[in-house]
Amino acid sequence: MRVDVPYAWPADEGEALALQDRMRGLADHRGPGPAHPRLVAGLDVAYAGDGRGTGDRVAAAAVVIDTATLAVVESATATGTTTFPYVPGLFAFRELPVLVEALRALRTTPDLLLCDGHGLAHPRRFGLACHLGVLTGLPTAGVAKTPFTGHYDPAALAPERGSHADLTAAGETVGRALRTRTGVKPVYVSTGHLIDLATATAHVLTLAPAYRLPETTRQADRLCRAALGAVGPGVRDTVGG
C-alpha cells in the first residue's frame, strides 16, 4: 500500500514536539469509522536490547486479518536501527520509520488499522495511532496493554467481558479501559483518526473473542518478535506513545 511521508523524520526532541503540534489538528476523532470493516491490520514493534537507547535494532510487523474468519490474509515486516532517542511521549518517532516500511510492503489496503499503542490517550493528544492515521489517511485506533495517560474509575468497570470505563485526563475523555475477557485486566482503547471511540471499542471487542488482546495485536506481536529472533534474548516492548 502507498504511504507518503511529506517531511523528514525528526532528529531530536524539539523537532518531534513541533511536528506533533503541527499535526495534532489533522486527526479526526469524530469518526464514525468503518461500521463493518472486512480487513483490519494489526501493527506492532519489538526492540532488541532494552529499547531505551539509540542504535537499538527494531522490527515492525503489519498483519492483515479477515474479520469474518480471523484468518491472516497478508503480513509484512521491516527491520532497522532506531536513531531517535528514548523519550516518553515520543516513541512514535522511534517506531514510525519501520512501521511505514512494513505498511508499504503490503499489497492489501486495510479498512482499519489497530496499533499496539495510544492515540488520543497521550499527554499531547497525538500518539502513534494518530500519527499513523494522518499519514495513511485510514481509520486508525490504538489498543494498548497498559495506560499511559488518563485515569478511570475501577468501580465503574464490571468484571464481565465487554464492560468498559472511560479514561479521562484534564476533564476530557481520551479513551476507554475495555474488558475483553471476564475477570481479566482490561486493554486501553483510544482513537487515532477517522473513527470514534464507540466504534473503535466495538471492533476491538469483536477481534478479541478468546484472548485478552485482539487477534490483530496477537499476530503482529508474534511476527515482529520472530523478525528479531536471531538476536536472541532481550526483545522488548515499550510503552509511552
Rank of each mutant, 00 (worst) to 15 (best):
I65R: 08
I65N: 01
T69M: 10
A71K: 15
S75E: 15
A76E: 12
T77K: 13
T77N: 06
A78F: 13
G80R: 05
T82F: 00
T83E: 14
F84I: 10
Y86C: 04
V87M: 09
P88S: 10
F91Y: 08
F93A: 01
L96R: 03
L96T: 09
P97D: 06
P97E: 13
V98C: 08
E101I: 05
A102R: 07
R104S: 05
L106N: 14
P110I: 12
D111S: 08
D111A: 12
L114T: 09
C115F: 03
D116Q: 06
D116Y: 02
G117K: 00
G117V: 06
G117E: 04
L120H: 10
H122E: 03
R125L: 13
A129N: 04
C130F: 02
G133E: 01
G133V: 05
V134T: 11
G137Y: 06
G137K: 09
P139Y: 04
T140W: 00
G142R: 05
V143N: 02
K145D: 04
G150W: 03
G150M: 07
H151F: 03
P154M: 04
P154I: 13
A155E: 14
G162M: 14
S163R: 00
A170P: 00
A170G: 14
A170K: 15
G171K: 12
V174M: 08
R176V: 13
T180W: 07
R181H: 06
V184P: 10
K185F: 03
K185G: 14
V187A: 06
Y188F: 15
V189F: 03
S190I: 09
G192Y: 02
H193T: 02
I195P: 07
D196M: 06
T199L: 00
A200V: 10
A200W: 05
H203Q: 15
L205S: 01
A208E: 01
A210W: 02
